[in-house]
Structures are given as structure tokens and as C-alpha cells.
Write a protein that binds this DNA or RNA. Structure first.
Lengths: 204, 204
DNA sequence: AGTGATCAATCAATCACTTGATTGAGATCG
DNA sequence: CGATCTCAATCAAGTGATTGATTGATCACT
């Protein structure tokens, strides 16, 4: 709560831009890029359309703002979770858990990411904002497999980068697949574990 | 070639609708749904906007037409390639090859599929048209793994459906990944083969 | 003559963006 | 102090351009 005033009428540009980005993100998740209207964003923030354009000059800049905000979110999140001290297998389990959490409790984030990735094909600005996120994720997962192969947790003939692509593709693809139940997610995770585990010729 | 006339000025409604769907598909691949304009479609077909609306009443119907045309394409393609007589391993290799071909030589198809899948989240009509394609693909791939497990080509503890999701997710994800070179695709394929193969406890 | 297909012209609605004026909090100065 | 000035922030009311869709006349073929 602000002490200086009971009702701070004017917000700073920085706060406004954050609020605008948040509102735009919600609306993109709800209606996609097609249905994104500057008027709707302004209405959700509770400001006039002209004020919106005062803070963010064009619609394109606005979408860029959303992309940047999303990138910043991911960057902050990865800093919050230092896991270098965990074993490769444990880190892999955390990846499963993180994705599951995002999928079931932050559907908006995933939907907006998906929209942005789609748009990134044609929009260089969006592409530039999305690429670091993707690369970071791939690097993180690939590092898990590199370490896991080195310490014998995973198959010795495993290609860390290719497995990282497979892993991430499988998770993202899950969201688009025919069955998005938690039970099926667990089956997918189990299959991914089997795909990378060391091949002990145990025969029951 | 039509025999009855040297220059058939008027096309049949069916041909027109096909041409319209094809033009719309191209434009979706180029500019996405956001940039899809009925005027552009008419121009590409070489007809008046009103004529477009004569054949396809609304834009929504037009998008539905594209979705249906795409579904029909996939259905026809799967009929053209009867592979039940091949071994599971051979069928899997065909899946790799088919995807690679589609990715590098029919990028449009993949781009439009991607756009349609994205839109399917909010559009029930599109969703209804896309779902059969997705299900069919999953079933086909899952069947390969079912047969492969049965005849010992693949791991006995392999979950065919989950592996199918992993497999398809990995392929689709490849197109969005950081490296889309044929060389990297081959690495991904190799990793997928290792992920499903029978575990011979060979130790070098 | 009749029918399906086509077009030029047009409409109503919507969109991103602009204009010109207003507000209010802080800086400047007598 | 307090009068005046500055300026970021805000808004009501547009502007011009674009969009999906319509109308009514015309064309081609039977």
C-alpha cells in the first residue's frame, strides 16, 4: 500500500507497460492473435485506447512487449531454481514436474508460448525473443543427459542433443495430443524414462 | 484436358471450390490466419470477391473448407500407401521418410497444419476436422509399435501409445527446434531408433 | 427463356491509430 | 509561501483505411 496517497491516480510508465503486457497476454491466451484488439487490452487495463497507444506506440510493439515479458519470466524462473547440485535423474524428474505444473496450472503461459512460436515464423522480432527461451530449454535438458551419460545414469550411446529434442518435442506434443490427462502424461514420462535408462538385461 | 471445349470459361462449382481451398491454403501458409483476406484469395484464384462468396458463403466456411481439404489429402495419402505387409521396423523407417519428405518438400502442408492445430483450440469446426487426422496418425504409429513389440523387433516393456506420442511429438517438435538441418533430423531418427530397440546387453 | 456463374459497385462494421484538450503532481522563482 | 510553469499521463471524439459481405446487373451456355 502506498502511504503518500490513498488513491494514486497516475501510474508510472513502467507499471503501465507491465499491466498492458499482462492484459495482452491474457487476451492472447483467450482469443489468440487473430482476436487480439487494442481496445480490449485497454479495457482490461482500465484505460483509454489513446493512453494505451501513448505507452505502446503500435500493436506490433505491443506484441513484442509480450514476447519480451515472457522471455523475462522464463529467465527469472530459471534463476530461481538452481539444480546443479542434483543428480541427472533427479533433474530429469524436475523437468517432468515443471512441465506438468505449467501445463495444468498455467495453461495461459503455454497457450501464449504456442501462439508466439507460431507467429515467430513470420515475425523476426518475435522470433528473436522466442529463440533464447527455446535454446535455453534445449541446453538445460541436453546438459542433464550429458551429465547422466557421464555418470552412468543413462545409456552410454545416448545422443544428448537429439534426446533433448525428443524429450522436449514429446512434452510439447503431449499438449496437442489426443489424450491430455495426467494419467497419460505419466505414461509418457515413464516411456521417456525407459528410453534413456541404462539397459540392464534383467529378465523377470 | 477437357475435350468438349478449347477454353472452358466457366468452372464447375466443385473445381472452383477446390481452387479456392488451394489458394486459401497457400495464403495461410504465407501469412497465417491473421493475414488471410478474402480479397487476396479471390485475386489468387483470379475471380471477383463476390464470386468467392457465391461459392463459399462465409470466411468461416472457407476455413472449414481448407480444413476438410487437408483432411481429405491425408486420408487419400494413407490409402495410397498400404504397408501392412512390411515389417514394423520397415514401417517405422517409412514414417521417418514420409515426415522428412513433407518437411523439406511440402513445407506449406506442415505450416498450414500447424496453424490449423493452433486455431483448433478455439474453433470447434476446425477441431472436428483436425482431430481425425491426429488420431489416425497416432493409431498408425501405435500399431507399428504394437506389432514390433509382438514380434520382438522392439523392447518388450515399450508402451505403444505413449511411444507413439513421443515419436510424433519428436518429429513435429523437430520442425520448431533450433536445428532443422537434414543432418540433425537423422540424429533425431537415430535416437528414436535406439529408444525403441531391443536391449541387447552388449558392452564394448 | 432460363439458370448458374460472374462482376462492378457498394455497404456497414471494425480496426489501429490520431487529435486536441484536460488533469494533476512536481519544479522554478519572486 | 504561493504564483506560475512544465510535463507526463489521461481521455473523448474522431480519422482514414480495411474488411467481410451484399446487391443488382450481366454473361454464357442450354
Amino acid at each position: 500500500m502506498t502511504v503518500t496517497s490513498t488513491a494514486p491516480r497516475r501510474e508510472t510508465t513502467d507499471d503501465r507497460r507491465r499491466a498492458i503486457a499482462a492484459a495482452a497476454r491474457e487476451l492472447i491466451a483467450e482469443k489468440g492473435f487473430e482476436g487480439l484488439r487494442t481496445r480490449d487490452i485497454a479495457a482490461r487495463v482500465g484505460i483509454n485506447v489513446a493512453t494505451l497507444h501513448y505507452h505502446v506506440p503500435t500493436k506490433e510493439a505491443l506484441i513484442g512487449l509480450v514476447a519480451d515479458a515472457m522471455r523475462e519470466d522464463f529467465r527469472a524462473q530459471s534463476l530461481v531454481r538452481p539444480r546443479a547440485h542434483l543428480s541427472p535423474a533427479e533433474r530429469l524428474e524436475h523437468e517432468f514436474y515443471d512441465f506438468q505444473e505449467m501445463f495444468y496450472e498455467q495453461r495461459d503461459t503455454l497457450a501464449v508460448m504456442s501462439e508466439l512460436m507460431e507467429r515467430a515464423r513470420r515475425d523476426e522480432v518475435i522470433h528473436a525473443a522466442m529463440r533464447p527461451i527455446l535454446l535455453k530449454w534445449h541446453q538445460m535438458v541436453a546438459a542433464i543427459f550429458v551429465d547422466g551419460v557421464a555418470d552412468g545414469s543413462f545409456r552410454a550411446d545416448l545422443d544428448p542433443e537429439a534426446t533433448s529434442s525428443m524429450f522436449i518435442g514429446a512434452l510439447v506434443g503431449f499438449g496437442r495430443g489426443p489424450d491430455t490427462s495426467p494419467q497419460y502424461f505419466e505414461r509418457l514420462c515413464a516411456e521417456l524414462r525407459r528410453a534413456v535408462r541404462v539397459q540392464t538385461p534383467t529378465r523377470n
